[in-house]
Nucleic acid binder design. Structure first.
Lengths: 260, 260
DNA sequence: ATGTAAATATGATCCAGATCAACAGTTGTC
DNA sequence: GACAACTGTTGATCTGGATCATATTTACAT
């Protein structure tokens, strides 16, 4: 029976209403009917391989993308060759909202590992949001969340020490993996030390040393890309000492609110 | 004719279609008809005095606000008393988008000087955007711009030197004042050195020294809060040396694109 | 397998900018 | 108009993290 093959093929094409990410992607229950209309415009392309781009700086904006599995890195390339990472996007998270304003992307986005994304053509989405008020509200919330997230990162980059930055980063990953249904204490990093450093405004050597340091302190167990958080509390403590405000800012999406 | 008097009184209550900021606030021509519907829900309250809050961290989100004149500072308060500035909002710019997601504001916003804002109740705005597709698109653009702006700031905070940060800050102000119809080369700062420092992730002493330094270099003339830019090119140069990508990121709103 | 490039770890040194300190100019207040 | 409370300038010192340098491990291509 070709059953297996069919199932594995179908996995990629799960309708929104059966998608494990629906609660992240569509946090507030839309009518079944509406979900189906959204479903109809979503394009499910074949998975991206490590290094494949979804879009590049300056390219025409046409769609937004929801990560289904894997990791997307968004970054800008400076003329001198160095790159600046501006975001890591995990399953359930959206990429490409930056392009709406000007119609061109202001950064590039590429897969850090084998990654599946749903592509949502924006003009079709707009037609839909215009007629489905619940969906429009969802979009506003989504974009607001993105703004809040970046505000939190600004605070982190503005005043925190290297130690606080890495602690915040690890906690953020932990929370996000957890909400995707994975372990919050044990996971693999899909990004390099250099990429983490770029994102956090640190040198890769500093990131490497901090991992060693956290390991010596028995806060983490680190084996290259594999991370095991031994003491979440100590990580939180590192933040709250100076930056109580960060907890709130870093994970505003954590507190599910019974919608507006 | 009592023209003069009427005009000055009316200034505060100018209908959107006569507002000098319309091109910033409503960048793409809406139908006259639609503008009037928007106009009908806008609340024009009395001006705020220096120090007055529009909203505070944790307060219920109900409206977004457009600055008509003056300056709004948004910031977070850390438990240890220090504050972190997360944005300065000049005329034509919007404040409060952070609250949409959770229904509560994640930062506080206060006037740095006498400031007039238009209050737009969000639920009424949503009703309107649902029926006026052009306005919905405008809102998406607006929020996308906010995301892009913050991405640019992240890049700035992530890897730039103190000199580059202040140069970028001054250029950003210059561009924004210009688009509001003021001089792009001579203006008064409404924020203190400490607030600039907080925003840029620098100590206030560093900001002060940099102003002195730029003055010695004949790039600026500085007299306390009064700034005169003598050589814009040198400021741009400071950025483009290392961070060509910043120019693009810092002023994505600068390049007016012909619709959609 | 084997060579080559990329990613990590770790030590040694250096420096941009923070912090500490003292002072001067400004603003507000009673 | 005098006192207090900010705000800004400038100097001296200190330090967290960048940078430079090297070795080791891993990943990939042939």
């Amino acid at each position: 029976m070709p059953q297996t093959k069919v199932v594995s093929l179908e996995k990629l094409k799960t309708a929104c209403k059966n998608c494990g990410l629906a609660k992240l992607c569509l946090p507030l229950g839309l009518e079944n009917n509406d979900i189906e209309r959204l479903d109809a415009i979503v394009q499910r392309n074949r998975p991206l391989h490590r290094g494949n781009h979804i879009f590049q700086t300056g390219s025409r904006f046409g769609s937004i993308y929801v990560v289904k599995s894997g990791t997307i890195k968004s970054y800008t390339q400076c003329p001198n060759g160095t790159e600046q990472v501006v975001g890591f996007h995990l399953p359930g998270e959206v990429v490409g909202l930056d392009g709406i304003e000007t119609g061109k992307h202001i950064c590039s986005a590429k897969a850090l590992e084998t990654t599946a994304v749903c592509e949502v053509p924006f003009s079709r989405l707009e037609e839909l949001t215009a007629t489905v008020p619940g969906l429009q509200h969802q979009m506003f919330r989504l974009m607001s969340k993105e703004i809040s997230k970046e505000t939190g990162l600004m605070v982190l980059l503005g005043k925190s020490t290297a130690e606080e930055r890495l602690a915040a980063f690890l906690l953020s990953l932990s929370v996000r993996f957890h909400s995707y249904g994975f372990s919050s204490t044990e996971f693999n990093l899909s990004m390099s030390r250099r990429e983490i450093g770029s994102y956090l405004g640190l040198a890769l050597e500093t990131v490497s040393r901090l991992f060693t340091h956290f390991q010596e302190e028995r806060i983490l167990e680190v084996d290259r890309k594999h991370i095991k958080i031994l003491e979440v509390d100590r990580l939180f403590q590192l933040l709250s000492d100076q930056n109580g405000c960060l907890e709130r800012l870093q994970h505003p999406h954590n507190t599910e609110t019974p919608g507006q």
